[in-house]
Design a protein around this nucleic acid. Structure first.
Length: 472
RNA sequence: GGUCCCAUCGUCUAGUGGCCCAGGACACCGGCCUCUCACGUCGGAAACACGGGUUCGAGUCCCGUUGGGACCGCCA
């Protein structure tokens, strides 16, 4: 049994997007599952649109997701001689030819064909047997497609798909500037790199018969193909920027967890019975191309959010603290110079572990733990910082002032005493205090919050709230 | 316009002829828990696109219709 070799081949014309990430993930899982090799190849033959920045961004995104590769990153721009050699071979064997038509001429003819309602928009081969090539033009090289018969793709996901060869265009394999084009390099590279399984988006399905013809012309062995369904936006068209955040780094910056992203992505088009949550090890064990669906999937950020919250709850708090710190810095709540004690930070993070759905949410909802004062939510202060609750606020304040220790237990006892004395409910005491300390009506348990905020700050905030209540 | 792919709750999906008057998950709604929020838990509403076949029996097989998508570039 020969080794399995797969690749992820993004073009660096943008950040690593959701769709690309899932393609990478499926390839990676397939390689890991079969103890094969996962190759990263940068498809940068389009020099005008490829940038170093995007190459970095893609690599960065892969690393963040934990998709490590075994070979590469290869870059097609480093391999130009190889492609040129194969183009020459096709030329020598009469399987390709020079074409002198300009892009403008071709465009015009395409428009014309479209207008006449001709279904087939393909090159008319007028340069195929040119007697006198124009000397003032640099030609492209076209691949000569067979014009009869059918090409059949044996796809691991779609099954057998056949195309009439008369539909296949004589595609350009080398531009007039001497650089090769995608459909050609992809074949050469996949063969040169010993790729056994081509796993890619099904937007490539229609390119595959053309590529198969190139494999045949070059006498190459054809790999196995697996075309995975697209990821769509809510309007069911191909997912793109206009659908909002679509790059993996955008989600990283919003405080999503990579494990959640991987889990979400894998379930988009793949399933294993009713199971929703998978560890990476489990995925490697259970992943298979047979489990991949044929239908396109709509990207649903809400489920990704839920998964992130699930992973947050599963993450050990100590680790969570490390993850939250950069977001606290970004919110301007801490800095290297102003770094709170680790133990305190741990308690603070712990208090939001069941509540924050993203790392960013941690930082934002924990704001009042760090600031000197709080900003009151108007509705909340109007309702709870009033004369009615004034006695409770005062008694809690006094109680804390006279308190021996400063533990959750002691605080709970204090509140109970106030409740009993006034024959009221705990919530009538807890809510005004909550508003006083956090500015709003929603927070972790009040005793926990008081302990985290600390005695001094708590007293100051209560005092301030009492003043407001007196005037309300 | 041509070629190709696809079709189960709003969304992701289970389902490979009888176990399905269709199961799970997110979101939504309601109960419980409760100092608020969240978590958790219990319950609810919610789908086999349509029409023909095949079969004792079809979400599952076949054909058609409709709908959606992709590709048709000197982009990848």
């Amino acid at each position: 049994m020969s080794e399995i070799r797969v690749r992820f081949a993004p073009s660096p014309t943008g950040y690593l997007h959701i769709g690309g990430a899932r393609t990478a993930l499926f390839n990676w899982l397939f390689a890991r599952k079969h103890k094969g090799t996962f190759i990263l190849r940068i498809e940068d033959t389009d020099r005008s649109r490829s940038t170093e920045e995007y190459i970095e961004a893609i690599i960065d995104g892969m690393k963040w997701l934990g998709l490590d590769w075994d070979e590469g990153p290869y870059r097609q721009t480093d391999r130009m001689e190889i492609y040129q050699r194969y183009v020459q071979r096709l030329l020598d064997e009469g399987k390709a030819y020079y074409c002198y038509c300009t892009p403008e001429e071709l465009e015009e003819r395409r428009q014309q064909a479209m207008k006449e309602g001709k279904g087939i928009i393909k090159y008319d081969r007028r340069c195929l047997d040119l007697k006198n090539p124009p000397s003032d033009r640099k030609p492209v090289v076209r691949f000569k497609m067979p014009d009869a018969g059918v090409t059949i793709i044996q796809d691991l996901i779609k099954g057998n798909v056949s195309y009439p060869n008369d539909q296949l265009d004589d595609l350009i394999i080398m531009r007039s500037d001497g650089t090769p084009t995608y459909n050609f390099v992809v074949v050469v590279d996949d063969v040169e790199m010993g790729i056994t399984h081509v796993i890619r988006g099904d937007d490539h399905l229609n390119n595959t018969p053309k590529q198969i013809q190139i494999y045949r012309a070059l006498d190459f062995q054809i790999p196995k193909f697996a075309h995975i369904p697209m990821i769509l936006g809510p309007d069911k068209t191909r997912l793109s920027k206009r659908h909002g955040a679509t790059s993996v780094q955008a989600y990283r910056e919003m405080g999503y967890l990579p494990e959640a992203m991987v889990n979400y992505l894998v379930r988009l088009g793949w399933s294993y019975g009713d199971q929703e949550i998978f560890s990476k090890e489990e995925l490697i064990e259970k992943f298979s191309l047979e489990g991949v669906a044929k239908t396109a999937a709509v990207f649903n950020p809400e489920k990704l959010l839920w998964l992130t919250s699930q992973y947050i709850m599963q993450t050990p708090t100590e680790k969570l603290v490390d993850l939250v710190i950069p977001f606290l810095k970004k919110e301007g709540l801490i800095s290297d110079e102003k770094m709170p004690e680790r133990a305190w930070l741990t308690k603070a993070v712990e208090s939001y572990k069941q509540r924050a759905k993203t790392l960013q949410e941690f930082a934002r909802s924990m704001r009042y733990y760090f600031t000197e004062d709080v900003e009151f939510d108007e509705k909340a202060s109007n309702k709870f910082l009033t004369e009615k609750y004034l006695p409770y606020l005062k008694e809690v304040k006094e109680g804390i002032e006279n308190m021996e220790g400063f533990s959750e237990e002691a605080l709970e006892k204090l509140f109970k005493n106030v409740v009993e004395k006034h024959q009221t409910k705990l919530r009538h005491v807890a809510q005004p205090v909550r508003v006083a300390l956090t500015g709003g009506t929603a927070s972790p348990g009040i005793f926990e919050v008081i302990e985290i905020i600390g005695k001094d700050k708590t007293l100051r905030r209560l005092q301030r709230a009492i003043k407001i209540a007196q005037n309300n």
